[in-house]
Design a protein around this nucleic acid. Structure first.
Lengths: 166, 166
DNA sequence: TAGCGATTGTTATATTATAACATTTATGGT
DNA sequence: ACCATAAATGTTATAATATAACAATCGCTA
């Protein structure tokens, strides 16, 4: 009957590897600080959406966010979420995972960058990499064809250490 | 009045850099050969969808394909296109461009691989790279975290040589 | 040529995302 | 404090992408 596992235990993510509550608080604090420095307004909605996104290390979709928001704010609608996401993306506080049409918190919002991710196909968790070498290679490969890169998507799917055990 | 250019001339793509008709014919021939070898059926619909995808070097969306198909086959519907796309993706004859929900012909269908692309934000053309170094780096970066990659997406957006001129 | 699996037809619907316009809220200048 | 303004949010509608489910047909082979 091949029961499909669906880990709560987390490689990147939750109780067993770290206290995720701190993860969330840190992310929100840093976001508040950055927005303040930039004169950008981290409103209630935006802050709450960011918090929801940080509620796990799994990318989360716009309509999942909406579902939760609706319980708290009866008039939440798709634009409510998408506008908040637009803001958070602009501020570099979250990244979009193109292969999933979903969103995840940025690990290092201090400097603007496109994320680079390892995404577990089993537990769903994602970790952000910073591999300057890959960017350099990609840039030089592009350059050799006269192409100038403005942004890029790098997403790898596979099995995280925890999920390989099974 | 900043008129928006929209090149027909092509870096990767059409009349000025190569005879694209040959491009299409080659792709279809190779697809037929591969499918035959594999005992996979390149039916009329599948062949036609592949041909439409190869009609330019721009990634094309499922509903653009559908629009054309409908002119030829009154009963074409979304599943018609998506099934053909599923087949072509399985056979490695096309790649999905995640950042655009669109599809493009595979430059080298002989060996199964995920594509790696440079996509011009101006003219829309895409070229497929093969950078084994990037894959090696990504693999080793994943490996150092105990992660095993099964597939990946690498897409860079920017300006192709032609479109930088303006 | 009967049976079977693969392919296609058909209808309906799920999921993701944006357009357009109305209303409310926050903020700086006076 | 008050007003003008821009920014943010509310609201309704719809566009764009993708899949589910079941029926009909096709093509191979036993």
């Amino acid at each position: 009957m091949a029961s499909k596992k669906n880990h709560k235990r987390d490689w990147a993510g939750s109780a067993e590897s770290h206290d995720h509550r701190i993860c969330i608080v840190d992310a929100l604090d840093k976001a508040a600080e950055l927005c303040s420095q930039r004169g950008a307004r981290l409103t209630q909605i935006r802050r709450r959406v960011l918090e929801l996104i940080w509620s796990s290390h799994r990318p989360i979709g716009a309509y999942s966010l909406l579902k939760v928001l609706k319980e708290e704010r009866a008039n939440a609608a798709p634009p409510t979420v998408y506008r908040a996401l637009d803001f958070l993306l602009e501020q570099g506080l979250v990244h979009r995972i193109q292969s999933q049409n979903a969103f995840i918190g940025c690990a290092d919002p201090n400097h603007q960058h496109n994320g680079m991710f390892l995404i577990c196909t089993d537990c769903g968790n994602a970790v952000e990499l910073e591999e300057t070498k890959i960017d350099r290679l990609l840039k030089s490969s592009a350059s050799s064809r006269g192409f100038v890169i403005e942004s890029r998507t790098v997403e790898a799917a596979g099995l995280c250490p925890d999920c390989q055990i099974n």
